[in-house]
């Protein structure tokens, strides 16, 4: 059925500065656990939402210059690969699984982690590193991705994300 409407029907893109805020806490350093946070951050930024990503514990691997381009995926302990668990421990399996996952991601035209972080920053997202994780791993801002705005305490992060919705990964 067709309905005729005389007044122009215009999509509601929402008011600018609606005040919605999202905090994404990335605590994992596996390749497969890096992407959910990045994809959600990117999507939220595209919807005009203010986004703050906080990297803590193993999540530091996502912003550590040494490791960020070389995150890995392992089938060990992951029943969702639907492979016999014993296979995951075979030599070379992590390398193989990582290559396959990277290929599948690239085929979707989704960037690798460092480039994806840059896209998040270019879209207006904020990256923060956890003070305790930095101290534990003896890392300074020098060791971290240049776009990380600072190494801050958990309390600082809670303060700057007041009123935000939180996603913990």
């Amino acid at each position: 059925m067709t309905t005729q409407q005389t007044a122009p029907l215009v999509p509601d893109f929402g008011a600018d500065g609606s005040g919605r805020k999202l905090a994404i806490i990335c605590s994992k350093g596996n390749l497969d656990m890096a992407y959910p946070g990045l994809v959600l951050a990117n999507a939220a930024l595209g919807e005009g939402v203010e986004v703050h990503m906080f990297f803590t514990f193993w999540g530091f691997d996502m912003i550590n210059k040494k490791t960020m381009g070389n995150l890995k995926f392992t089938p060990i302990g992951n029943t969702a690969t639907h492979m016999p668990q014993g296979l995951g421990g075979l030599p070379g399996m992590t390398h193989l699984a990582t290559s396959q996952m990277k290929k599948a991601i690239a085929e979707l035209d989704v960037p690798e982690v460092p480039e994806f972080l840059q896209q998040v920053v270019d879209s207006g997202g904020h990256l923060w590193a956890c003070r305790m994780s930095a101290d534990m791993q003896h890392l300074t801002e020098e060791n971290l991705y240049d776009e990380v705005e600072g190494i801050i305490s958990a309390a600082d992060f809670i303060e700057l994300t007041e009123g935000a919705q939180v996603i913990f990964i």
Partner: peptide, 26 residues
């Protein structure tokens, strides 16, 4: 948005300036 940026050589930042807040949809 990523495809537009990559294929036209327009930085993502610029797309956000031209079509503010929700560039892909706008």
């Amino acid at each position: 948005l990523r495809r537009v940026s990559a294929q036209t050589g327009t930085p993502v930042k610029r797309l956000f300036e031209l079509f503010p807040a929700k560039p892909a949809k706008k």
